[in-house]
Design a protein around this nucleic acid. Structure first.
Length: 477
RNA sequence: GGCUCCAUAGUCUAGCGGUCCAGGACGUUGGCCUCUCACGCCGAUAACAUGGGUUCGAGUCCCAUUGGAGUCACCA
């Protein structure tokens, strides 16, 4: 068999949604796994839907996620142009070839007539009205400048079967197939037509796309047959759902790739997660690098039923990727979120050290660090802790001593602070918690913090630490 | 509504006739660890949609029912 060529053919409608990204991912993985080529083609035959800048978003996202295509509008290739609107003159030629062979025909029906067609089985169906027009009549109307479309002439009997790599054999009765429009009245090809022509012209021998095409694929195959072209292999994949009933879509306000990035998810985690939505490797691997994905990817692992997008599991994977970042990489990536917290005098490296292992998404940073710049009066009930045997009364006794120890320190770092705290524990002859708990509470006013008393004191610095202790001690009186 | 497809825990999934009183993961939860939280570690939790077949034997094959998805555009 000749070299495998897959393609991702999005239409530039403004963003790249998660489902589209996954389609691109699988296509890419499958191509790479088989030493094939992955091609990007922009399907912009609908002039009305064109969105400014949408193409760039597609390029950017694909490159950013590592889904580098071998051929495409911005990288070139031997089968260009890779933007359908730039190949506009190609399609009519092929449509006319089909008219010639009787596999397609001119149709002059207007909207009104179409709308008056009776519904069959709950849906309107074109009645092949114009198929019976004589060649002479067609010629006249064309010469007269009548608006027309070109329709595919579907067989009315028999059935068409094809093989899908994940769903198996799919058979559809030809009578179910409508005479779909190939060339629109504006002269542009419909997606269905341009798709087939371009796939063939670009040597695409493997078509990967969502299941929404599962039942219309026979129409495409009939086109391949009419031209005498070899049909490609098909790999349809199930949709990604928001919940059991609804597909994930930007229109419903669901997260797009950009949204997820903005919410603090790492691209590697996103790719890893969506690879797992609808596909699973032979072993039980969950966290996989891009290279491992290529290595393990296999069509037989693609699932048949829709899968629901689970932000919780994505977050879990994301936390795994966050933990393995180097401190430097983490600091750099996190800086944009840390900056939102208006931290001025705090050691960023120290801050990062405390939060890196404690967040699942970068968006949580703001909440986690708020206590650094905000220290309000708090309920002394926070000093209550059954397990540590502490309460406001014990805090009242311990805190002044803590303050005293801290003030005498010549070195201000976690080790010395912690040592000072333990020293006090020794002197008082109590459990660690009896000192550590109230100290942390007094410094933050929070039941849970991203660090222990000494770590937080180190971060706060001598001055702020003493100030907070004084304030808390005062509030206990 | 017609047609096509799908159906294992709350979610993602393994399973391709016996090795499954169903395995992994997220979540939830108990515990350990611990300067709180988090991490980590150990344990628990919960599923073969229903009903018929086929078979010595069915989560695995067939049929029906139910449920769900997709599709039926001069949108892609």
């Amino acid at each position: 068999m000749s070299q495998l060529r897959t393609r991702f053919a999005p239409s530039p409608t403004g963003y790249l949604h998660i489902g589209g990204l996954r389609t691109a991912l699988y296509s890419y993985l499958y191509a790479k796994k088989n030493n094939g080529k992955f091609i990007l083609r922009i399907e912009d035959t609908d002039r009305g839907r064109y969105v400014e800048g949408a193409v760039e978003v597609i390029y950017k996202t694909l490159h950013e996620t590592g889904l580098n295509y071998d051929e495409g509008p911005d990288v070139g290739g031997d089968y260009g142009p890779y933007i359908q609107s730039e190949r506009a003159n190609e399609y009519m030629k092929y449509a006319l070839q089909l008219v010639e062979s009787g596999d397609a025909y001119y149709c002059f029906c207007d909207e009104e007539r179409l709308a008056s067609l009776p519904a069959v089985n709950g849906a309107r169906r074109y009645d092949k009205h114009c198929l019976s027009l004589s060649a002479e009549e067609v010629k006249q109307r064309l010469a007269r400048g009548d608006k027309f479309v070109i329709r595919q002439n579907m067989p009315t009997e028999g059935s068409t079967t094809y093989h899908d790599a994940v769903y198996g054999d799919i058979t559809v009765e030809n009578s179910e197939l409508e005479d779909q429009i190939l060339i629109k009245s504006d002269g542009m090809p419909t997606y269905n037509f341009a798709n087939v022509i371009d796939d063939h012209l670009m040597g695409i021998n493997c078509v990967m796309r969502g299941t929404e095409y599962l039942s219309s694929t026979p129409k495409y195959n009939l086109l391949y047959d009419a031209f005498g072209w070899e049909r490609p292999m098909y790999i349809h994949m199930p949709p990604i759902m928001k919940d059991a009933q609804h597909k994930l879509s930007k229109r419903n306000g669901d997260a797009s790739y950009e949204d997820l990035i903005a919410k603090g998810f790492l691209k590697d985690a996103i790719i890893n997660y969506i690879a797992l939505l609808g596909w699973s490797p032979k072993d039980d691997s969950e966290k996989m690098s891009f290279d491992e994905l290529i290595e393990k990817f296999d069509v037989s692992g693609i699932n048949k039923s829709p899968s629901i997008f689970d932000p919780l599991k994505l977050a879990w994977l994301n936390s795994l990727y966050i933990k393995e970042m180097t401190p430097e990489a983490f600091a750099e990536y996190a800086s944009k979120w840390i900056d939102k917290c208006y931290l001025k005098n705090f050691d960023k490296a120290l801050v990062c050290k405390l939060i890196q292992g404690r967040i699942e998404t970068f968006a949580e940073i703001e909440d986690k660090l708020r206590f650094l710049v905000q220290f309000d009066d708090f309920d002394v009930a926070l000093y209550d802790n059954q397990k540590q045997k502490t309460n406001a009364d014990t805090a009242r006794e311990v805190l002044p001593a803590v303050r005293d120890k801290f003030e005498k320190l010549t070195e201000w770092n976690n080790a010395s602070l912690y040592a000072a705290l333990l020293e006090l524990v020794g002197e008082l002859g109590v459990k660690n918690g009896k000192v550590l708990w109230p100290a942390r509470i007094a410094l933050t006013g929070l039941a849970a913090t991203p660090g222990g008393a000494s770590e937080i004191a180190e971060l706060l610095g001598r001055e702020e630490t003493l100030r907070r202790l004084d304030k808390s001690i005062c509030n206990l009186q």
